[in-house]
Amino acid sequence: MPTPAEEAGNPKVVTRYGSSSGNETYATLVWRRFKRSPMGMIGLVLVALMLVVSIFADFFAPMDPKQANLPFASPDVIAFEDPAGSFTLIPYVYPIGDTGEFDPVTFQPLTGLVKDNPTPTGFFVTGAAYKLLWFIPSNIHFFGSTDGRPIQLLGTDKFGRDILSRGIIGSRISLMIALAVVTLTTIVGTLVGITSGYIGGRFDSWVQRFVDFVLAFPQLPLYLALTSLIPVTAPSNVFLTFVIFVMAVLGWAQLSREVRSKTLSLARIEYVRAAIAVGATDSRIITRHILPNVLSHIIVSITLAIPSVVLLESFLGFLGFAVKPPLISWGLMLQDTGTFSVIGSYPWILSPVIFVLITVFAFNALGDGLRDAIDPY
């Protein structure tokens, strides 16, 4: 460990994280530590890809999510071979169907790849019309069939709609709900926690009793009770706004308690006491001295709270209390898995779970990497 004199005389200081120049910012040091976390980098890449796909969902969806085809159609298979069996760089999509052969024991028809008339595919193909970013007319899709025939890489639901396309489009609603709820809970929880911890005294006691009251509520029954207050005939946007509001009202208390505990310790540090001694206002002390020091914890809490909201939305959507048609979300898509007979006969109906698992893994990996990089101790 270099002494203060050595640090003053050398332009570079060797720390436990390697050599660093004295003029590096805190963000640079955090990014350097974060890059050393493989799982954190994987989470960052996945989160970036999910955000890009959700923003340009219509472009990445190979099919119109409302187009009805054969109900409960099994997933198609992509193969890099033509009908003659020769290798080709242009992939073909082969449906799963009756091969014309029978099991010699049970005499049941066998299913497999139907190679009679495969569907050619390609990138940047013409397909269903849509509006890119909600106002630019377009009909170009990132991937799809070149002859206009439907492709269902994850199969279809009970109405014959492509599950993959609906999952990509549904990422908008699911991620939008998560981001909106986390934004509201972060703002309210941070303001209440910092104010309560900094002012202290009787005000802090009353605020914390109210926080205890909110935390004591059994959230799931309250979610169901509050969302059931909206009439079934209410517009989808009104119902969605109310669901976001309910989740935000019940989700800010835990972050408030965490921020308050950090504020209580920061309020006793010397530079905060010095700011009070020189006559700094409470708002300046909170915004310039306390908030920057709890910001690292808030950032980590955000990345770890988003997957929790995604899981909650999926669960409520499965029960029918989150999103109403014609909107699409992952939870709403899981309503088709309500019976064991459907799952046993058509297991690809569970495909929306894949989207939820990837999202939860990505944000948890990103949050763990940020937590280690921001606070290595």
Rank of each mutant, 00 (worst) to 15 (best):
W134S: 15
M50F: 07
V93S: 11
Y26T: 11
M63A: 14
I96R: 09
P71I: 04
K66Y: 13
S37E: 12
P65T: 04
D82S: 11
I55A: 11
A27Y: 10
V105K: 13
S54L: 06
K66A: 13
S20T: 07
M50R: 03
L110R: 10
H141K: 09
F123H: 07
V13Q: 05
T28K: 13
T126L: 07
W134A: 14
Y26I: 10
L51R: 06
P38R: 12
M41K: 00
Y94N: 04
F80Y: 14
R36F: 03
G22R: 14
T25I: 02
G18S: 06
V114Y: 01
T28E: 15
F135W: 14
I96M: 15
N117Q: 10
T121M: 04
V53T: 01
F135P: 00
Q67N: 09
K12Q: 13
P11A: 11
N69V: 14
G112E: 10
S74T: 01
L46N: 08
S138V: 02
T28N: 09
I140S: 04
L46Y: 09
F72R: 02
P38M: 12
A73V: 00
S19M: 08
V52T: 08
P95G: 13
L49Y: 07
G97Q: 10
T25D: 10
V30R: 04
T25G: 14
Y17C: 01
L133V: 11
F60W: 08
A73Y: 05
F107M: 12
V47M: 05
F80C: 07
D82R: 08
F34C: 07
I42E: 04
D103Y: 03
I90K: 13
F123R: 05
I136W: 15
P11R: 09
Y92F: 13
A128R: 11
A79K: 08
W134P: 00
D98S: 13
P11G: 02
Y130E: 00
N10F: 09
E81K: 06
S138I: 03
A79I: 02
S138W: 06
D76T: 01
T111Q: 15
S37G: 12
V52L: 14
G43W: 07
G122I: 02
N117V: 08
M50S: 11
M63D: 02
L113V: 03
F59M: 04
N69L: 11
F123G: 07
S37C: 15
